[in-house]
């Protein structure tokens, strides 16, 4: 079982991140992007921003959920392979923030998908975002150790 262990370990050591903008004001989005770029450089921790949810382990969601994109969010979440961790970045994703009284806003992504880490701030600072992602990586590690993961050595080719 050496290879299986190795794969599990490497999956939790280098989680890939997918970002979905769920109706945010762009403030948190550009802070997520700032985490990827040289000054905050998340790739130091082996985190790569990917566009495809099927490649990703961590989902960062920014913004309030509205009536139109709740299905898209659910879809992105369902497409991600198990185990997965969801980070709600910014207060809009946590609770709906200042927009929670608007008619088209559900208020908080935890009404649609389960959330593991909440990062407060309007917008959340890149440092806070890195903290949140580190915590998400810890939770991912824990989920890997708790659960029998369907990774067979054969499927790796």
């Amino acid at each position: 079982m050496g290879l299986k262990e190795f794969v599990k370990k490497s999956f939790s050591k280098s989680p890939w991140v997918v970002h979905y903008d769920c109706g945010s004001c762009n403030g948190c989005d550009i802070e997520v992007l700032a985490c990827m770029t040289p000054i905050y450089d998340m790739e130091r921790f082996g985190m790569v921003n990917v566009g495809n949810p099927k490649h990703a382990d961590i989902l960062i969601v920014t913004g309030t959920v509205n009536e139109k994109n709740k299905d898209v969010l659910k879809n992105v979440y369902d497409m991600m392979p198990d185990p997965k961790v969801v980070v709600a970045a910014g207060i809009c994703a946590c609770s709906g923030g200042i927009f929670r009284d608007c008619y088209n806003v559900l208020g908080g992504i935890d009404k649609v998908i389960p959330v593991d880490v909440y990062v407060p701030g309007c917008p959340a600072k890149p440092e806070a975002m890195i903290d949140g992602l580190y915590k998400a990586a810890q939770i991912l590690k824990e989920k890997y150790s708790r659960k029998e993961v369907i990774v067979s050595a054969k499927s790796l080719g």
């Binding site: 207060i91 609770s95 200042i98 909440y118 990062v119 407060p120 701030g121 309007c122 903290d131 915590k135």
Partner: peptide
């Protein structure tokens, strides 16, 4: 998780007991 950190309450507080700390709140 609903606060937008604008700081208006701090400016308007008559007793100045509200304060905006420079450190961000950590994630939970």
């Amino acid at each position: 998780f609903e606060c937008v950190l604008c700081g208006v309450c701090v400016e308007k507080c008559p007793k100045k007991c509200l304060k905006l700390d420079v450190h961000y709140r950590s994630c939970t």
